[in-house]
Amino acid sequence: MERTLFLAQRISAIILGPLVLVHLGLILFAVRNGLSGAEILSRTQGSISWSVFYGLFVLSVTVHAPIGLRNILQEWSRISPLTINIVALLFALIFLLLGLRAVAAIV
């Protein structure tokens, strides 16, 4: 399992690298006329490409972040390995649900 998690975290990082750059660039671009819900929705609603972009973003974060959290808890806490795995899984679920909900809300 450790090898699978190692590979999953590295591969998700490779995917997240360009996505984060585009996301940051988009933030700079999006606020040029002030930031409003209407302006965001006008750009994203009905856009398949943005839904794919942020859908992939959410999936990558769902894989990447909980593995990192698991590593941190293993090193810095005295929580049992089983509990750490459950906490990491819960965080994965939270990221997935909140992320996909946010994506569904804007497209």
Binding site: E2, R3, L5
Partner: peptide
């Protein structure tokens, strides 16, 4: 070597 507590850490 790549198991629990292995090189991935």
């Amino acid at each position: 070597a790549f198991g629990d507590g292995g090189c991935g850490s």
